[in-house]
Design a binder for these strands. Structure first.
Lengths: 228, 228
DNA sequence: TAAAAAAAAGAACGAACGTTCATATTTAAA
DNA sequence: TTTAAATATGAACGTTCGTTCTTTTTTTTA
């Protein structure tokens, strides 16, 4: 599966995400009309990603956000209780995207190697599709407890596949927890250093392919190459 | 070489770094006595790393820095022109540490595989020794031009070793630029996610060893394993 | 078209920020 | 010990921040 296929199957847009945020926060958001709210939420998120890309969320002023969105300061506060809440909303939604996706892919394969490939690739493709969400979630989530537990969660998924695969003789023995960590680090590379790959003219498919090659060389037991 | 040996050979302390900063900025720093200046600079750097670890440098107030260092607000401004300059000083010094080290290790090996191993390991060990500097430099250096060119520089070093090694038949053919990127991503993992490895009880030697195993499996040409 | 509801606007407020500077304290020199 | 230089202090300043709230504008309903 390449990125093009993935996008067709996945069928979720930034607008869908904004709609989800609206419905999850109807109690807080003071706007009644869904269309208006979703429209403005999309504007807000885009502006936040844009402004905080260079200097971080803390350095983004509400006045800058007002200017970038074209909304007044007063209007903005109809969509969140305060600046910190805005950050929380984005983070929570970001993790939700990642989590839901991983669980969907997990169910769609049984063979450990196929499953591992699918999980790794899906994550890379998803981070391409929602790069600003991924970038923001990583960069603004420093020492937060919820973030650590989510990192643990997604890492455990990879670890479990590797452990299960070793039992079946598909993967070499090894410290699977460490391997899972390394895989995660390489996945993150894609959305953290976009400028680099743009410059080198490397596509997301090339990147994912290279990552799969690395994992195959290190993890796959001898004589299993036919499965690749 | 393990971390213990590395530390013995490297022989640079946080105090040495502070002294270097003082000597490089004698024009700006208003304090005449080296001992006083170096002492306070060390206090300042430690406090900056401590406070900005959780919420970032932007969120650190000068008053918080004053409290943590035990120095008055006025005193602090004898060591840097302004808050932004303080950040620049730390970043520049951070990159300087990385650059000097890499160049030293480069000269100490000729065989490509030995050289690759030495460069990768040295970087991981160095990031362990000066983790706060590495963490700060990565997290606070977002879209800055100087940072990108430094990232390019260190990546090019890895790429060149891989290309040279392929010519000599030591390494498999492949997209070496991409491989270098992946290696860098895994190196960064060590200082960005310290909490994870502390929790898993994984030492820097274990981590470096695992990374070397991955690189060996992916890069080393068949029949070269004897060198490892 | 008139009344009611919803949404947008932006001036105003207090708090917190980075920075300065006149003064006090400490250290070194005479 | 006295004098001069170096260093430390923290109140005060102007600015900018996040946030609120009354008013205006727009949209919907009757």
């Amino acid at each position: 599966m390449d990125y093009k296929e993935f996008k067709k199957i996945y069928e979720v847009s930034n607008r869908d995400i904004s709609r989800e945020v609206y419905r999850n926060n109807k109690g807080i958001i003071l706007i009644k009309k869904e269309k208006t709210a979703v429209n403005n939420l999309e504007k807000i998120f885009n502006a936040v990603f844009n402004i905080s890309y260079k200097k971080g969320f803390q350095a983004m002023s509400m006045r800058a956000l007002s200017q970038k969105t074209g909304m007044s300061l007063g209007s903005l506060y109809a969509y969140f209780k305060g600046k910190e809440d805005l950050q929380d909303i984005i983070q929570i939604q970001g993790w939700s995207i990642i989590k839901k996706d991983l669980e969907k892919v997990l169910k769609s394969h049984n063979n450990p190697w196929e499953r591992l490939k699918a999980v790794i690739k899906a994550h890379v493709f998803l981070s391409e599709l929602f790069r600003p969400w991924f970038y923001f979630t990583f960069m603004e989530a420093r020492n937060i407890k919820a973030v650590k537990s989510m990192e643990d969660h997604t890492q455990k998924i990879l670890t479990n596949i590797l452990v299960e695969g070793e039992k079946q003789g598909v993967f070499k023995p090894g410290n699977h927890e460490l391997t899972a960590s390394m895989i995660k680090a390489m996945q993150q590379e894609w959305y953290l250093k976009r400028w680099k790959y743009k410059k080198l003219n490397i596509s997301v498919d090339q990147f994912a392919g290279h990552l799969m090659g690395l994992v195959e060389a290190f993890c796959l037991a001898p004589g299993q190459e036919g499965c690749a």
